[in-house]
Design a binder for these strands. Structure first.
Lengths: 214, 214
DNA sequence: AATCCCATGTAAAACGTTACATGATTCT
DNA sequence: AGAATCATGTAACGTTTTACATGGGATT
């Protein structure tokens, strides 16, 4: 009969108005004092949002901005009045602020974090790889993470001059800093695990998984 | 008009064969001894892959399996020979194993991990929320994470009886265990930050956003 | 007998990225 | 003058989810 099982409950309203998280994230960027262009938003997302909630492609930011404006959650104005591709600055409206507040304040759970870690995918498949190569990948990952850590610390330093409205973003950045520190430690511990594994079960010739043909 | 523009450079081969990571993840599930159905794959992904690399929807798993079979990377057979929707079990082929090994061993970098953390998104927007609500969300997150931690530890216990081919998945699970422990600590530290923030900058009357009805 | 879990799939829609196109302004 | 960066947008494509459809087997 009807969908899953039989009952088919309406799946309790996506809540908050049904917009995807990305739309709320973009509206959130707009919720801080000042107006800004899509381009500026993208740079800001790269420098902060990205550490705890990924940075959408620039084309998607423009698309979300248009949608937010159509919904009345944002307004835009041009710098040079008439030109077709002139700079366009967006600002949040009172309606937008209310909608965002209701989204942030309502849905009690927010859902679990989603992590896509390509390195772990490779480690998980380690039985198909040369052990040395794996450890190399982990080392590269540690180096990259240290670089990101530096970026976050720079952002945090710049946030020192922050006022009122910026204290929560600062909490988020502090969380990101600790998160990256832990990411480094995690990778180092995994490196140890991989080395131990290389010593205990030295399967250079074995690879018995691979040699059963058909 | 052969499509996009004029220059049309070929974008240096997506490498490894051009399949999306999801396809490799599904093939990876198949790369461990034994054959299994899409349904079983989904359950397994929920129980382990999900902790470091998200679990695709069941419909996508079926789609990927068909694609892998079309590519010759997997074969399938039915249990009850003739029925149209009978159970179908998949197994990796030698070609599939070779392709997977080459994917895992080639692309040097693997790309940075992507984290989408809805809770942090809300904390970041904390200036729009009642402080108590925020702390409640964090507390719920801690509780859920502890639950996941228990799941991983169970999986790890079950993996105790593991042989050869399962040692790398075990490393990945151990990483996940530590990751979740750290997630709890991170959330607890953030809770402290939020409380400190409530004491230092007590903006109770501000909140102009929340009490406009409509 | 009804209900749940197993099991497989299709169709449509939403989401998101890449590539392309275009032009202004700023740096060298 | 040429290059880089600012700035906005469209088109096409691939991915991924949701909802729907269907039915067998086991449990209560």
């Amino acid at each position: 009969m009807a969908g899953r099982g039989t009952t088919q409950q309406r799946d309790e309203e996506p809540s908050g108005g049904g917009l995807p998280p990305t739309a709320w994230a973009v509206l959130g960027l707009l919720s801080f004092p000042g107006e800004r262009t899509g381009y500026e938003l993208k740079k800001w997302a790269d420098a902060s949002l990205r550490f705890f909630y990924w940075s959408p492609a620039i084309s998607q930011i423009y698309a979300e901005l248009r949608r937010l404006e159509a919904l009345g959650y944002a307004t835009s104005r041009r710098s040079g009045p008439e030109e077709p591709r002139a700079k366009r600055s967006y600002a949040i409206t009172e309606e937008g602020r209310a909608a965002l507040a209701s989204w942030a304040g309502s849905g009690q759970d927010a859902g679990p974090p989603v992590l896509k870690h390509p390195l772990l995918l490779r480690v998980w498949l380690g039985h198909l790889t040369a052990p040395g190569h794996l450890r190399e990948l982990v080392a590269e990952h540690i180096a990259r993470t240290r670089g990101e850590l530096k970026e976050v610390r720079d952002a945090l330093a710049r946030a020192g001059e922050a006022r009122e409205a910026w204290s929560h973003p600062e909490v988020a950045l502090r969380w990101s800093e600790r998160r990256l520190e832990s990411e480094v430690e995690l990778a180092e511990a995994m490196l140890d695990d991989l080395e131990r594994l290389g010593r205990t079960g030295p399967q250079p010739p074995g690879q018995r998984v691979a040699d059963s043909p058909t």
